[in-house]
Design a protein around this nucleic acid. Structure first.
Lengths: 248, 248
DNA sequence: TCTTTTAGTTGCGCAATACAACTATTATGC
DNA sequence: GCATAATAGTTGTATTGCGCAACTAAAAGA
């Protein structure tokens, strides 16, 4: 964007800006799409149809198109629609990965987004056999992934878990209407530990993020649970414990 | 990295990968370098010597060099040395910004890193008049910045504040040896609120991140304060309160 | 109607916290 | 030297929040 303050740096930067032979790194966008199905956290993968790593499972994504894409985020939204056939449940930038050795084709910079969606809202697009949901065990899947995608997935899982600690994003993994036991089970599946019922409900109530849907109930084998809807898609903070609490 | 699953998408992606006329977006790295000086949070800015936005203050940074830079992070480290003349106090990836309209030259993708450093460790490189520390008021500086840098700075300030809530990173804004009152004042300056002394010290003690430097004291106008050193540069977690606490 | 199953609430003991008051150690002015 | 100011650091305590377990509630099915 701008040169370094040294004269040499400026000259070099200027040369690069104007020289058409200057080789830019390639730029791609990839997605880590999570859902919870069959009592497991799952991630959407695509079988690569072209080399390199042909036949390997990989995260969906591809090259940014400066003509069609208004922004990196718009590119991610476009790929979300193309790959998973969904609109915009929850999309957040995860991190950008870029180095000389992560792809045999050379210098590639990749900005990774992670998305959350309810499993029932997914309509997988395109060739069904080249797309799959893979259950997450520990910090990744049980088989090999192309390129550095195992590392990326591990980072995404870690981010998901840590955001669960202090935000409400788990609601985006459920359908629009859900029960508190379902919400708690979602937390437990992802965090891989059971939570205390009364403490969980106290937190949810304190945060005041859900509104009850009057009258409606969802029934299973026991007493039916009340239905709730997520109220505020903008607010994110959840946790009453932070260092600001020391303020006086 | 790979094409979409549809036949049309694959063909298009293949064409792009192989066609040399395909125009990639430009890629740059920029830095938000924070320090605390004169009881204020300050950010390092550079006066642009070239158009566009010539003469405007902007965040330091520049184009990635695929020949010299091993990775995006290595590029950030290089620019940190070039611009601020420091090694590696604390460097973290903030976010990637990319859209058609953020720079008049066209599609530019920028990965922004934010760095923390002690003000006494800074040796500003190059032309002194083109480099300055600017105090942060609210979520930015009091004057205009080039491009979308005001937005980027606001995001960086927000990230810094929120990380202060649950990590130790404020220690990187202080010299290697510091006192607890200095550390607390650093938190207060950035969070813009006063904190309770005994609670603050309890937290620091619980986290067990500092080691006392025996004997040494730093004296001001009253009783001298004990000196401490940061122990562990790797660990990050700070906060005992999280939803995992509901586990049983 | 009795048992099972799941939902949802209540009450209590323990532990963490906020707040305030206290002690400690230096410099400074008389 | 002694009182005072200034800052560092500790201690005590009322309150709050939390984990835990026991309880009630509402459905299905035998």
């Amino acid at each position: 964007m701008n040169g370094s303050p040294t004269a040499a740096g400026e000259a070099e930067s200027l040369r690069r800006r104007e020289a058409s032979w200057y080789e830019k790194p390639s730029f791609t966008v990839e997605l880590v799409i999570f859902t919870v199905r069959d009592q497991r956290l799952q991630v959407l993968l695509i079988k690569r149809a072209e080399p390199p790593a042909k036949g390997c499972w990989a995260l969906p994504g591809g090259f940014l198109d400066p003509c069609r894409d208004e922004s990196v985020e718009a590119c991610a939204v476009r790929k979300l629609v193309e790959e998973a056939g969904v609109r915009a449940p929850y999309l957040e930038q995860l991190k950008t990965y870029g180095s000389r050795d992560r792809d045999p084709r050379g210098w590639i910079v990749t900005t990774v987004y992670f998305a959350l969606m309810a499993s029932d809202s997914v309509r997988l697009g395109g060739n069904q056999e080249a797309v799959r949901w893979a259950p997450v065990r520990g910090d990744g899947v049980t088989f090999e992934l192309a390129f550095d995608h195992a590392r990326i997935l591990a980072d995404a899982v870690e981010r998901l878990r840590s955001k669960l600690e202090y935000t409400h994003i788990a609601v985006h993994l459920l359908p629009e209407e859900f029960t508190l036991p379902e919400l708690q089970r979602t937390y437990e599946i992802i965090l891989q530990q059971s939570l205390d019922k009364s403490s969980f409900r106290r937190r949810v109530a304190q945060a005041d993020m859900l509104e009850e849907i009057p009258g409606k109930l969802r029934d299973g084998s026991g007493r039916p649970a009340r239905l709730y809807r997520f109220r505020d898609y903008d607010r994110q903070t959840f946790f009453p414990r932070s260092i600001s609490r020391h303020a006086r």
